[in-house]
């Protein structure tokens, strides 16, 4: 039973795909909202995000989504899934937009991929990192159930996450550097890729999320 899944909406871009994908995998009820009362009643929370980090942080703070998120993670202790810029917003700071302070929920940095960027063989790599890349699982987790190691997921980002505490690393992705693809801590699972755009593998991860009790 997924119960009520709240997709936190802070006004940055289209969240319909996330909501449609959650409905598709059988969530009982999905709401896209920043209403504090509704989120307080939620059984699990998805924290998505697209666009530039400065604008995202501005809206997250203006709508007090940071407090809602902290409450979900601690007081409510419900499962939380962060996606893409949602993950980046949880780090301490980002190099994007000339340097932006983020929520510091997970100590660590969001770094630029660098230009020029190249792989181990010296081939030039384009930025943004856009498309389907192999996700290397670093530890077991309920959200990886039914998903083989090195399955490809859809990424689109120019900045990548590096958590300080390497024990949080649930998956990495190679793109000129080794970037954090998923971080896991207690009832929080945060991914850089877009499960809602990653076909069968992404839907499986969302299915795992709506059935997850928040423990590892």
């Amino acid at each position: 039973m997924s119960g009520l899944v709240a997709v936190i909406d802070y006004g940055m871009g289209n969240l319909h795909s996330v909501a449609s994908a959650l409905n598709h995998v059988g969530a009982d009820e999905v709401v896209v909202t920043h209403d504090a009362e509704l989120i307080r009643k939620a059984d699990r929370v998805v924290f998505p995000g697209v666009g530039a980090i400065r604008d995202c942080m501005h809206e997250i703070r203006r709508l007090q989504c940071d407090e809602l998120l902290t409450r979900a993670l601690t007081e409510q202790g419900i499962p939380v899934l962060a996606i893409c810029v949602g993950l980046q917003a949880m780090m301490s700071s980002s190099q994007e937009n000339g340097g932006v302070d983020c929520l510091d929920i997970i100590p660590g940095e969001v770094r630029y991929f660098g230009n020029p960027l190249s792989d181990a063989e010296g081939n030039r790599l384009k930025v943004p990192h856009m498309g389907w890349n192999a996700v290397c699982q670093k530890r077991q987790h309920p959200l990886w159930r039914g998903i083989a190691d090195m399955t490809r997921f859809y990424f689109v980002h120019s900045y990548y996450v590096h958590a300080e505490d390497r024990s949080l690393l649930a998956a990495s992705v190679e793109y000129g550097v080794s970037a954090d693809a998923a971080l896991a801590r207690d009832n929080l699972f945060a991914v850089q890729f877009h499960p809602e755009k990653s076909a069968g593998a992404g839907l499986q991860l969302l299915r795992n999320f709506i059935g997850w009790n928040g423990t590892c």
Partner: peptide, 8 residues
């Protein structure tokens, strides 16, 4: 494995 070339 690296980033896959896409077919659209």
């Amino acid at each position: 494995m690296s980033l896959a070339k896409r077919i659209i």
